[in-house]
Design a binder for these strands. Structure first.
Lengths: 187, 187
DNA sequence: ACCTGAACACCGTTCAAGT
DNA sequence: ACCTGAACACCGTTCAAGT
């Protein structure tokens, strides 16, 4: 409990941010979940902006590590690419949450600069990974890889949003299926 | 001024909601723009939820009328389909705003029910229109039309979000271009 | 009919003080 | 080191009362 209050705050803040965004993060509720008072959060984080930035930073670091392991553990790059959309399914499974950074992109203009930078980093990590895998799997030419990587990422962001607004995870699967059929995701 | 306060409130609220979402709608600033006090807004709209619902309703009604005229004024259905992404470009051109309903989809879980219903209606109108045009233009079979319509719509939502988070309208165009190249938008 | 002042509830934040 | 009560400034919202 008090041994790891900082970690508990980060974990709770992540869940709240995935469900309600930056504006929905409020210190009084957050503190209650962790079993401390709102004022105590300031012992660990100097401001709401810094807390949100720490959450987003942890988020993209974990994502980057996961994507790297996904690629390492795939026999062929195309298999890793095929499993990429799964990554964004888990949050939807978990109480209709969405990827923290998809959510924060919507409110981007209202985000403090420290938070913007970390959200940006998440996008960069994903685009770079997709680009690398698209080239390795020879799905597109190296020249086209950047554009295709961005298109896949934005397509998945849209699919998450739409599935969430219908609270229907089957719609997410159906959209990914349609992207595949239309040729967006590979070949 | 007082002759049309209701309309002025609606127009101002629409712009704010497109830039900052439902949570960003604030009555004091809104009132100041219209030249009245915050409390006076409640004379025209019984709550923030009703105001937002009225804004969203007006929004999808205007969109539906525009899409219908776009189709009427195109010599071939495929031309209307080709111009569909333009519809969502205008908001980005206008101070990096995005489609009101794309924005509200992100915050869907926190929306009052009246607002949810109108955001839903916007999605329905767009999917129905796309489906009709996809079939008329023989881009896909009638059986596949619904799925393809949803994939196009979600792809465009994602493209708006991504372009906005980079404050770069050229990125929107580039994403639409990539969707076309990958085969999502037609053929 | 149209509008408002004043109050209320809530929020991020600070800080002196407690253990 | 870790936590808190109480207070501050601010803001969306409500309502009884004004014209």
């Amino acid at each position: 409990m008090n041994a790891n209050a900082r970690e508990e705050i980060l974990a709770a803040a992540k869940l709240v941010a995935q469900a309600h965004g930056y504006a929905g993060l409020n210190f009084r509720d957050l503190a209650q979940q962790v079993g401390i008072k709102a004022a105590s959060i300031y012992y660990y984080f100097p401001s709401k902006a810094e807390l949100a930035a720490a959450v987003a930073k942890r988020y993209w670091e974990d994502s980057a590590a996961y994507l790297e392991s996904l690629l390492q553990n795939s026999t062929k790059p195309i298999d890793a690419l095929r499993r990429y959309p799964e990554t964004f399914r888990w949050a939807l499974e978990n109480d209709n949450r969405i990827c923290l950074c998809s959510f924060m992109s919507a409110q981007f203009d209202d985000l403090p600069d420290e938070v913007k930078a970390e959200v940006q980093a998440f996008t960069d990590v994903n685009i770079a990974w997709l680009k690398k895998v698209l080239i390795a799997a020879k799905v597109v030419s190296p020249k086209q890889a950047e554009n295709r990587a961005r298109a896949i990422y934005s397509g998945i962001m849209g699919a998450q949003l739409m599935a969430r607004s219908q609270a229907d995870i089957a719609l997410y699967d159906s959209l990914i299926q349609s992207y595949r059929a239309a040729g967006l995701l590979s070949a």
